[in-house]
Structures are given as C-alpha cells and as structure tokens.
Simulated scan of single mutants.
Amino acid sequence: MTTTFRIVISAFFVALSSITAFGQSLPASTSAQGFHSQVQLLSGGKLGETWLAGIAITLDPGFKTYWRNPGESGLPPSFDWSASENVADIEVQWPAPERHEDAAGVAYVYSREVTLPVVVKPKVADKPVKLALTVDYGICKDICIPAHADLARPLTASGPDRAAIDGAMGRVPRRRALGDPGDPAVLSVQPKTGADAALTVSVRAQDGARAVLFAEAPENWYVSVTPDGERNRFTLTIEDRPKDASGPVPLVLTLVAGDKAVETQVSLDGDSLSR
C-alpha cells in the first residue's frame, strides 16, 4: 500500500471521528454502546505493586476491530488516560490478532470480542486509583467506521473481572529471543537470495499448528509478510522506508501457532539486511 493511500485513509477516519464527536458528550460510565460494538472498562484488583484493568470490546457478528498495527488498512485503537487519578503509568497489552485478507488488503484484526489487559502503576501506593479513558477505535465490515467511548472506573481490591483479565493476559504473546528453544519460536531472519529489500524468516511451531507471522516496523517503514511456499518459512518485504534510514532499525515479529504466541525483536541495518 502506498504512503499516499495510507494518508487518505487516515484523513477519512479523522473526518468521521470529528462528525461523531460533534454534539453534547455523555457522562462517562464503566461501559458504552458503540457502532455495532460495546466497550467496557474492567477492574481486576492488585498484582504486586500494580493494579490490573482491562478494555473489553464486544462486536456484532461479522464485524471486526483492529490490533495496535492494523495492517494495510484500518484504524488502530487510541487511548487517552489523562483524566485518570493517582496514575503514574499505564501499559496496554495486546493479545495476538487474526490475519484477515480481502479486497482492501491484509489487515490484523480481532473479531467477536477481545479484552486488552491494562497494567496500572499508581503514583501513591496507598491511595485510591480511578481510571478515566477516552477510546477511539475502528469497526469494520464492508466499510470501516470510527467509534468512540468515554469510560471511567475506580479500581478496587475485589477485582470482579480478574478471571477475564487473566484469561486475556494468557493470550498476550510472550517475549522470546531469536532462536529460543521453546515452541513456537522465530528461528532466523536472513536476506532473501535474489530479492531486493526482502528477508526470509524461519520459524518453528508445535506439531500440527499452522504458523502465522505479523511484522511491525518503525514509523514511516512499511513491511509485508507472505508465506514463502515452505512450511514455517515467510518472506518479509520492505515495501517502503525513509530515504535516510540507517541501522539498527528495530523490527517486532509476532508469531502465532495454534493457541500459543511469541513476540521477538530483531534489528535491521539501514540497507534492510538482518543484524
């Protein structure tokens, strides 16, 4: 997908967001009904010195929303926590997505429902924490429409939604080094013979599991991933990059195999060769 087309898509979503935001805002609550979707702010109690929360998005049949990297088209969720109270840091975690391909290209999506775990570090440990979230996200079936919700929730020690949050955390890819001995694993990233700006990524998956690979590059880098014709091997193509790019350039590879997923960070030289 060209950079120009990406800019057009972004402008389209910004314009639609402005339209949906026009008018009187409603008081924030723990849940909100959106376009063919519902969003809920969950409370999961304490985990050591942090609090657990979650963002649960439920979708009508046939609709999907997007991962942190939407792929070739779509709108990734954005979060504004600035009105929260007694919060020093917030980390949103991302369960592994699905790969969806249609006439618009390849997108990385969630269908039916997804819970994004949230780890909250308080400013003062013994004072109450209240989350206030403004979330914008894309909902897509035949066309993609932006949705918006304002949510708020005090976090309590009882953590009524802990089971749902723990289940979602179990689907967040585990961080693993290149060549990790476990299954699944990203084994190697090598220049592809006879191809410019392309790499061969070799992976390992547990017996019988189909491997799916997702790649994320820095801003203004665009990459694509396709199966390489052999089991557990993929071609990663650098579709576009800054003219003055120089290494090392971080690249995050997320490998999904069955019900397991891992995340591996590698580096590229500015000339797109593996480091």
Score class of each variant (00 low, 15 high):
93 Q>W: 04
147 A>V: 05
133 L>I: 01
150 D>C: 04
95 P>S: 05
151 L>E: 14
81 W>E: 13
127 K>H: 07
84 S>E: 15
106 V>C: 09
133 L>T: 04
83 A>M: 14
134 T>K: 09
78 S>M: 12
150 D>S: 05
123 K>H: 03
112 R>D: 15
87 V>S: 02
113 E>Y: 00
119 V>A: 07
122 P>H: 04
87 V>Y: 00
139 I>G: 00
108 Y>A: 05
140 C>T: 10
87 V>P: 10
131 L>S: 02
127 K>E: 13
135 V>Y: 00
139 I>Y: 01
111 S>N: 15
127 K>P: 05
145 I>S: 00
78 S>T: 14
121 K>R: 15
122 P>S: 06
109 V>S: 01
92 V>E: 13
106 V>S: 06
92 V>T: 08
84 S>N: 11
82 S>I: 11
126 D>C: 03
147 A>E: 15
135 V>K: 00
131 L>G: 02
130 K>H: 12
84 S>Q: 09
117 P>R: 01
148 H>I: 07
94 W>R: 08
123 K>M: 11
98 E>S: 06
84 S>Y: 02
146 P>A: 00
89 D>V: 04
98 E>P: 03
102 D>L: 02
115 T>W: 01
145 I>L: 10
130 K>D: 14
126 D>K: 12
82 S>K: 09
100 H>R: 08
125 A>M: 13
80 D>A: 03
126 D>H: 10
145 I>Y: 04
85 E>D: 12
112 R>W: 07
149 A>R: 01
82 S>A: 08
145 I>K: 06
142 D>M: 04
127 K>W: 04
148 H>T: 07
132 A>W: 05
79 F>W: 14
151 L>C: 06
85 E>R: 13
119 V>E: 14
104 A>W: 15
97 P>V: 01
117 P>F: 01
118 V>I: 11
80 D>Q: 06
97 P>F: 03
105 G>Y: 06
149 A>K: 03
92 V>M: 10
138 G>S: 06
102 D>N: 08
